[in-house]
Nucleic acid binder design. Sequence first.
DNA 1: TTAATACTAAACCATATAGTTCAGTATTAA
DNA 2: TTAATACTGAACTATATGGTTTAGTATTAA
Lengths: 103, 103
Amino acid sequence: MQQLDNTFTALSDVTRRAIVARLADGEQSLSKLAEPFEMSQTAVSKHVRVLSDAGLVIVEKRGRIRHCKLDAAPMKEAIDWLKYYEAFWADKFASLTKHLAKD
Amino acid sequence: MQQLDNTFTALSDVTRRAIVARLADGEQSLSKLAEPFEMSQTAVSKHVRVLSDAGLVIVEKRGRIRHCKLDAAPMKEAIDWLKYYEAFWADKFASLTKHLAKD
DNA sequence: TTAATACTAAACCATATAGTTCAGTATTAA
DNA sequence: TTAATACTGAACTATATGGTTTAGTATTAA
């Protein structure tokens, strides 16, 4: 429950989703990760902390460098929660009539 | 992008997820919806507003009653976003090959 | 016509979030 | 040994969020 809160909250920010997307291409140091964003490294560090608290990113310190890598496992719970509602949009006919009813 | 923000934010609260779950069983008036929660109707009304702004709930006024119904469609975008990362937990081998393929 | 119902709006409060800057620590390179 | 790098922590700011209460409106029932 709290895990779902953390996962959805972590993913509700566009910067954090971008961090996740970048980490899908492989491990990155925190500073490399911060480079493309138009905000301080401290700000990115805090975003990584939110992701790390949610278990979506694992940070490992080797020397002075923090290596960040993705752990998508907590997303499973979120996707399972969402999948329950798939029936409410997946049915094309239901979806169409629902759409037409919008007028 | 903003839609994804809205969807994930809307679903990051346990009360709002409970509202969604109840609406999956069918349309409900706002007051009926508010009954089981240990907070004011005003608070529930605000939660419904967040869900409605995210497009997850459609509120229709008939007489003095606001009928709330689920529209799960915006969840599709969220589930699609999450599905991209399924490979990173669903299958260790797939995750590895995906990672290697990125080079 | 009056009273009850089903809300919304506004004002307020406490805490959380997203950002900043500045100072400090740990590690590595020169 | 000194200087640079890669961070974190603390203090601060502005705005958002989740809740409250009070007051008011629209609709229905008596």
